[in-house]
Amino acid sequence: MKNKTLKLIPAALPLLLFSVNTWGQAAGEAASSPYFYDSMLSYGMLALAAVVFIAALAALYNLLNIMVKVQQIRIYQEQGIEAYVEEMKKPQQSFFQRLYKRMTNVVPVEKEEDILFDHEYDGIRELDNVLPPWWVAMFYITIAFGVVYYTYYHFTGAGPSSTEEYKMEMERAEKAVQAYLSTQSNQVDETNVELLTDEASIAAGKAIYEGKGTCFTCHGMFGEGGIGPNMTDQYWIHGGGIKDLFKTIKYGVPEKGMISWKDQLKPAEMHQVASYILTLQGTNPPNPKEPQGDLYQQVDNAAPADSSSTEVKGQDGGTIGMSE
């Protein structure tokens, strides 16, 4: 009986392998997703699915075992072999009990006198239990893992190096971002940005100014200036139009200490904060920093085509006169 049921396991194995294969594909897709939480989640679901599947397999195995046993007893009864009937009615150890016994191979406490060494150290005796087979198996598996892992990454050249992994990650991300952006309406940049005046955008800009943008640390809580220039007067070093501000925020002026924000703020956020800063014009906050740069002639925002500087020095030629 034992042999019969054991044969079921090899039969089930290809099935298992097949399913693992499909899962692997799912995992591969998840890993290529740029959203970290998503891939974490799919891996978790995958592990859960695997556990459930294995548990189901074990339950099925036990069920089959019982059915075979019942059938066997019935056959023996029909044939009138009483001794077998007695034997089969005895409680059998379950699969897990037998597995446990095989994997631990331990001498029971009651019989340990048989395997007690005769040496002792300050009263400490030692038993001659064998190495737990499951432990030995684990040791061999980890060694095999080590050999395979090292071979894969360093002898076959198949496994990617840390920097190759990085390149692949960047390429994947680039593609995903491009794919996403292609679905979005056109992005704000310094060539097409327009002043925002709605309350929500200005409030959002203020929040960025006083929060994640940390603009206030250099330009003052009210735009009065500090390490950086005053932004409430009409004097600007790099131009005072919305397009100028957007550009200064986006690319920074590193040699003067203004850092580039394009990797930390989204275009929409730079748009909002630039618009907010222009609301500070003429607010006359306390402790203003002396004016720096050139007087910027406010151009009517409604004026078409060009809101850039009218100052003599001019800005980057590319933006002047740019029309949409």
Binding site: E126, N129, V130, L131, W135
Partner: peptide, 11 residues
């Protein structure tokens, strides 16, 4: 109590 396994200690 006696130590479980001398062999395990060694390995």
């Amino acid at each position: 109590r006696p130590v479980y396994s001398y062999k395990l200690s060694i390995i």
